[in-house]
Design a binder for these strands. Structure first.
Lengths: 363, 363
DNA sequence: GTAAATGAATTGTTCATACAAATATACCGA
DNA sequence: TCGGTATATTTGTATGAACAATTCATTTAC
């Protein structure tokens, strides 16, 4: 029998010790569910309140976590010594693109779990990411969400390993590194671009220009999706209206690309911009050149940035669930932090076409 | 009464918070005896078990120690004052308005000083700000930059005092609280709006509509500047083309305001939008109504948001040095953190008119 | 097939009651 | 005076009973 009712040691304490021994001796392993309170009532003959007291203490000591409706689980007992309730988020630039939306998704989910969020801007540079990584480690964050920089894969890998070496879990967001066993959340860029291109084709566009950067996995996938759609439609890919570059976004560069596309447009009737910011630039260039969108040129983007933007320009684009991506990243991170889930979690979310008024139907 | 029995927040938790506040606010001081369980039963009307739960948690958190037969006592809150190199930034919403720019300014300056930045979104709500404040304190940040919420001044004051009570310096950014001796950085909104209005007047506009919220000090000042400029020009202020409201920005509200302004425009030839986001909405409404800007209606904003926006709309606006405001805030904060500078630092930056193409000259 | 409603399992909150254990204090006796 | 003893006070342990809230799983409805 577990409980000796004649003993002077309190019964909740006896139960508490028994449970702790089971855990430490591996009878209840990590992530195992221990008996429910009701079951423990039957096993021990104690009142539920007494059992709750024992369990509450073990929760406090970090042996157990309780989950409503699910039960009580053994958690990895690690030194609480340095674990802070802070996570780090590394984004390119909090002012630009989807970073605000992503950061907000992360922060909301983090706040819901009583975690604070340290924000770091990398400007897509390895050195900045590295600098911030050191700082995050110094502040002993308990987890990191990382949007890889524009640096080569092995550089980004270095950053990730820096954290992992110290048992700080990392989840990649949006951009991913191929052939690396890291948790990530991204969207299906290949399929998204495929659908978006098919949409243009269905609208009668045959010559579709595209401009993007091949330095990010996301945009590379979009290029693939674009090519695949064209091929499936039996249209030869025309390299002269594919304007690529191999660095992070700069206004200067895409101004050039846009001008180049417009000036040699030939029979080109539509432009696929690698993401919304590029689309905005293309749009502004078109305006300056007196080209009407969509009357003279159709335009699609990718991202569907914050409503403030979409009030200004009626851009047909592929909506990425960025906010949800942030939330999902945090959810996975939390799993890892709370010791559980050794399994790799690689989530690919679906995007959705948002039809606005930047595409002309040629039918 | 301490306990609100109709509240959805657990009663033990209410009591717990109340006790914690008493301790933190010094009502119960170090080594004081707090009321006995029996007394608390009488004070609160709760069952003893409930009271014990609240106290147990506080004991766990290190606020109290219990001594048999003697009572329960306030302990010296373990000095986590291991002041981390972390600051907190409280902004309304990192996705919207100038928040990204401000946050970036702060973060850059912080990084330059080897400080990390915890980002908090308040959504302009007191409760969220309060929640984050507690979290920041728990993480023992060494300073806070705070954009006051849309709550009444005394509520915002509570937040500020929460920090100050713990010797955590606070710098207000952008919005300020009158009659409160706190460091702040803002811009001269009165003068900015005055100049902007004078600019419109100089372009020959006599009937100038305006829409903004009076809930923020910044926008109130802009309204004053607007009125002052009109008066100096000998033009009677026409209340029918002043559309105010008294809450934070909502798209719905300003859609209404914009429509109202346009539909009763009379001889109105220009609109002064309280800030750029409002201007964007006004712009989109105009487009939907077929009103050409600036040909049929001139429009000015206030802020001069991120270039991504200004690529989309050629808005004449008052450029606020938001990024610099973030940097300056951090500089002041750093002064306070590093001990020195007891003197109040209240910085008012100058804004600068950016002339683009949303204003027609009527001369 | 998908969304909405329902049900069931489990922890979360609250109550009322009782007796146990520790201990400061007062009291008592030598 | 000293040492023990009783007593009152306060926290500690334990019980049992409800009902609430959350959320996974299933079923139902569209």
């Amino acid at each position: 029998m577990i409980i000796d009712r004649s003993s002077p040691v309190p019964q909740y304490f006896q139960l508490q010790n028994w449970l702790r021994e089971q855990i430490e001796q591996g009878v209840f392993k990590h992530d195992d569910k221990i008996p429910t309170e009701e079951e423990l009532v039957h096993i021990t003959g104690l009142a539920r309140a007494t059992i709750r007291q024992a369990i509450a203490n073990l929760v406090n000591m970090g042996y157990l976590v309780r989950k409503r409706r699910l039960g009580t689980f053994v958690t990895l007992r690690k030194d609480l010594s340095q674990r802070k309730d802070i996570i780090g988020v590394l984004v390119p630039d909090i002012r630009a693109g989807y970073a605000p939306e992503l950061a907000r998704g992360v922060e909301d989910a983090a706040a819901n779990n009583k975690l604070s969020t340290i924000l770091c801007n990398t400007d897509d540079l390895f050195v900045k990411a590295d600098f911030h990584a050191d700082r995050l480690i110094e502040n002993s964050v308990c987890g990191v969400i990382f949007v890889p920089t524009a640096a080569p894969d092995d550089k980004n890998r270095l950053i990730i390993e820096k954290f992992q070496k110290r048992n700080i879990p990392v989840v990649l967001a949006d951009r991913i590194l191929p052939d690396l066993d890291v948790d990530f959340v991204t969207t299906d860029n290949l399929q998204g671009a495929y659908l978006l291109t098919k949409y243009l084709l269905a609208k009668g566009h045959k010559k579709i220009g595209i401009t993007l950067s091949t330095i990010f996995s996301t945009e590379r996938d979009r290029l693939e999706g674009y090519k695949k759609a064209l091929e499936d439609y039996g249209i030869t890919v025309d390299p002269s209206i594919i304007k690529l570059h191999d660095g992070p976004y700069t206004e200067k560069h895409y101004l050039q690309s846009a001008k180049a596309l417009f000036s040699q447009s030939g029979e080109m009737t539509a432009i696929f911009a690698g993401h919304d910011r590029i689309a905005y630039l293309v749009y502004s260039v078109a305006r300056k050149m007196g080209i009407k969108i969509p009357a003279q040129m159709s335009l699609v983007g990718y991202d569907d940035l914050h409503p403030t933007y979409s009030n200004l320009i009626s851009l047909t684009t592929m909506h990425q669930p960025i906010y949800e991506m942030g939330q999902e990243s945090l959810k996975i991170l939390l799993d890892k932090i709370q010791g559980g889930a050794e399994t790799l979690q690689q989530v690919v979310l679906k995007s959705q076409l948002v039809e606005r008024a930047s595409v002309e139907s040629l039918e």
